[in-house]
Design a protein around this nucleic acid. Structure first.
Lengths: 328, 328
DNA sequence: GTTGGGAGTGTAACCGGTTACAATTCCAAC
DNA sequence: GTTGGAATTGTAACCGGTTACACTCCCAAC
C-alpha cells in the first residue's frame, strides 16, 4: 500500500549489475550488451520497477511539469483552454498542474509554492496581482495568457478587433441604440479590453456608450443579471463571454420573452453551446484550444532557453447567428 | 530567468553556518541561538531562498501532493468537487494535481506516470478501466469517488435513495406515465446506479420503466437530446445530472415551449444554476464539495497509514422546484 | 607481437534537501 | 577545580536517480 517501491540499487543488485547499467537499460541510452539488457529487463518487469520521479527530476534538474493558473475552473472556456495545454504537454511527457486560484487571498503564496515543483507556469490574466507575477517571472519562466500588458515577459492573446466589429454590427447594421455591457471591466484584462472596444465602437459612430452591469463570467451571473437588464429597457445586452450570455438568454426565455425580439444578446468565445442553442448565439469565435497550446509551446521553448517573441496574437472572428437579429 | 536559485549549501556558506543549521532555521525545528538564527534569516531573505521541492520531498520520502482524476473538467460538477478537495488539501500544504482523462486511450499510462509524483490519488468513477485501478491501488493509496463497487479499496459516494424518491415523486405525485431517462447508464457507475433506481421506482408501482436516451453529461448533450425527447411524446425527462437537464430546458424554452407545461424536466446535483433558472430545476441535492473534501481527508489518512473505512456514504436529498410541476 | 580503438561495465560524484549522531561550548552545581 | 548536562552547531550519510570518467576486454590492423 504505502510506497514500498524498489530503487535502482535494489534492481541493480537483483540483476547483478551496477545502477548505471540499470539506468542505461531503462532509458535506452549508452551501450549495453544484449545479454545484460535481458537480465536487467527481466528484473524490471518482475518487480514492476518505475524510477522515482523525484530522483529522476533531481538528477536532471528538470521537473518535467508545468503549471497553468486560472481564476477558476468552471465552464467550457477553461476546459477548452486546458485541452489545448494538454494537447501539447502530454505528447512531450510533461505533466500539467492545473491551479484555480478562485481569487483566494492566499493564492500568491500558493503560486510561490507551486513554482517550486514545476519548470514554468502559464498564468491567465486576472488571476493574481501584478506584483506577484513580476516576482514569479523574475525567477521562473512565465507566459501570460490574455492581454495583460505590463508585468509579463511573454504574452499570448487573441486579437480584439472582432469584438469591436461585433458592437459596430449591432449599432450600425441592426440600428440598436441602447446597449448594456454585461461584465466587469475591472475584473480581468480581457474584460477591460472588451469594454474599451465597446466604448470605441460607440464613439466611432458618434454615440454615447451604454451602461455596464458589473458581474462575473459564469452562467449563474448571466441569470442573475436578467432582472436588471430587462428592467432597464435595453434593446441589446453585450455580454463579456458566452457563459453569461447563455445564462442571460436562459433567464429571458424562462420569463416567456423572446430573443432577439425582446432583447438582443451576444457573447464572446463561441463555446460549443453557442451554436447549439436556439436562437444561436452571435459571438466572437476565439481559438481557445490553440491559445492554450500556443502558450504551452512558448513556455516549453522558454524553459529550454530558446528566444521567444514577447507577444503572440491569435485571430478572432465575428460569428453572426440569430441572437443578434440576423436571419439564420 | 532559468532556475538559478540558491541551494542550502550556498546559503549556508553565505551565512557562515552549516547546511543543517540553515535547514533548522528555515523549518523552525531544533534549537538555534538567536544570533545564528538572525544571520541565517538575513541570508534567506536577501536571496529569497526557498528550498527546492525536490530535495525536500526526496529527503522526506513524501511528495506533498496528490492527484484527483476525473473524466473531464468542464462544468460546475467537477468545479465543486475540486473546491472540496482543495478546501482540505490547501490548508495542509498538500498540492493537488487535477487530471482530466477525457477518456483518452493513453490515460492509463498517464496515471501510472502521475502516480510517480504524488503520494496518492482520488479517482472518480468511470474514468479508467477497473484493471488499471487495481494496478494503481496495489501500489499506491487510492480512494474512489462514486459508487464503483469492486476494484476499489476505499470508496466515497452519496446515498442514492433520493434519486429513487424523485422518480417515485414524478410517477406517484404528478401522475406522469411516460418518462425518458436522459443519460448513458454504461458510461459511469453513477449513471448505472441512477438507471437502476429509475427502473426500480417504476417497478415498485407496477409500471413498465420508460426508455433511455443515451448521451453524455454536459449541457451540450442536453441541448442535443431535445429533438428526440420532444418527438417521443414524453411527459417527463429524468436527466442524469443538472447539466444535461439545463441544456435540455434551454432547448425546450428556445423552441417556445413551456416547462413543466409541455415537458417536466429533472436533474441531479443541485448545481448553482438550478436554483436560479426559471422554472427552478427539481433535482437531487448532493453534497459535492463535501464529497471531494471527504475523499481527500480519507486519502490523506490512508497515506499516513491510518485505518480507513472501506465505504463512506454521504446523504443526498430531493429538492422540489417548479420544473417537475410542484408550485414554487 | 604490439598497438589502437571501440564496446561494455562499474565507481563515484552530484542533484538539494533532512537528520542522526558526534563534537563543542557554556554554566551551574558539587 | 571538576563534573555533568543542556544548548548549540557541524559532519556526514541518506533519499533515488543520472552520468562523467576510468577501467577492462576483445579484436583488427600494422
Amino acid at each position: 500500500m504505502t510506497d514500498d517501491r524498489m530503487s535502482v540499487r535494489e534492481i541493480a543488485k537483483l540483476a547483478g549489475v551496477s545502477t548505471a547499467t540499470v539506468s542505461r537499460v531503462y532509458r535506452g541510452v549508452g551501450s549495453v550488451s544484449a545479454a545484460t539488457r535481458a537480465k536487467v529487463q527481466a528484473a524490471i518487469e518482475q518487480y514492476g520497477y518505475r524510477p522515482s520521479h523525484l530522483g529522476e527530476a533531481l538528477a536532471n534538474r528538470r521537473h518535467g511539469a508545468l503549471a497553468v493558473v486560472f481564476p477558476g475552473l468552471s465552464g467550457p472556456y477553461f476546459a477548452e483552454l486546458i485541452n489545448g495545454v494538454e494537447s501539447v504537454a502530454v505528447p512531450r511527457q510533461v505533466s500539467v498542474h492545473v491551479i484555480g486560484t478562485h481569487l483566494r487571498r492566499e493564492a500568491p503564496d500558493e503560486l510561490l509554492d507551486v513554482a517550486r515543483r514545476v519548470d514554468g507556469m502559464a498564468i491567465h490574466g486576472g488571476t493574481v496581482p501584478k506584483t506577484v507575477i513580476k516576482e514569479l517571472a523574475a525567477r521562473h519562466p512565465v507566459v501570460m495568457i490574455g492581454p495583460d500588458p505590463h508585468p509579463a515577459p511573454i504574452v499570448v492573446r487573441t486579437d480584439h478587433q472582432a469584438f469591436r466589429q461585433l458592437v459596430s454590427h449591432l449599432l450600425a447594421d441592426h440600428g440598436l441604440r441602447k446597449l448594456i455591457f454585461v461584465g466587469n471591466p475591472a475584473g480581468s484584462p480581457d474584460l477591460t479590453e472588451r469594454w474599451d472596444a465597446f466604448v470605441a465602437a460607440h464613439e466611432e459612430l458618434g454615440l454615447r456608450p451604454g451602461k455596464q452591469f458589473r458581474t462575473g463570467l459564469e452562467q449563474t451571473h448571466g441569470v442573475q443579471a436578467a432582472d436588471e437588464v430587462l428592467a432597464g429597457g435595453y434593446d441589446g445586452a453585450v455580454c463579456g463571454n458566452d457563459e453569461t450570455a447563455l445564462g442571460l438568454m436562459m433567464a429571458v426565455l424562462g420569463r416567456g420573452l423572446r430573443v432577439p425580439g425582446d432583447l438582443v444578446i451576444t457573447g464572446v468565445d463561441d463555446v460549443p453551446m453557442s451554436s447549439l442553442v436556439s436562437p444561436g448565439l452571435t459571438t466572437v469565435a476565439r481559438p481557445l484550444a490553440e491559445l492554450g497550446a500556443t502558450a504551452t509551446r512558448l513556455l516549453l521553448d522558454l524553459i529550454n532557453g530558446a528566444d521567444v517573441a514577447p507577444e503572440t496574437v491569435l485571430p478572432s472572428r465575428l460569428v453572426r447567428r440569430a441572437s443578434c437579429g440576423c436571419e439564420d
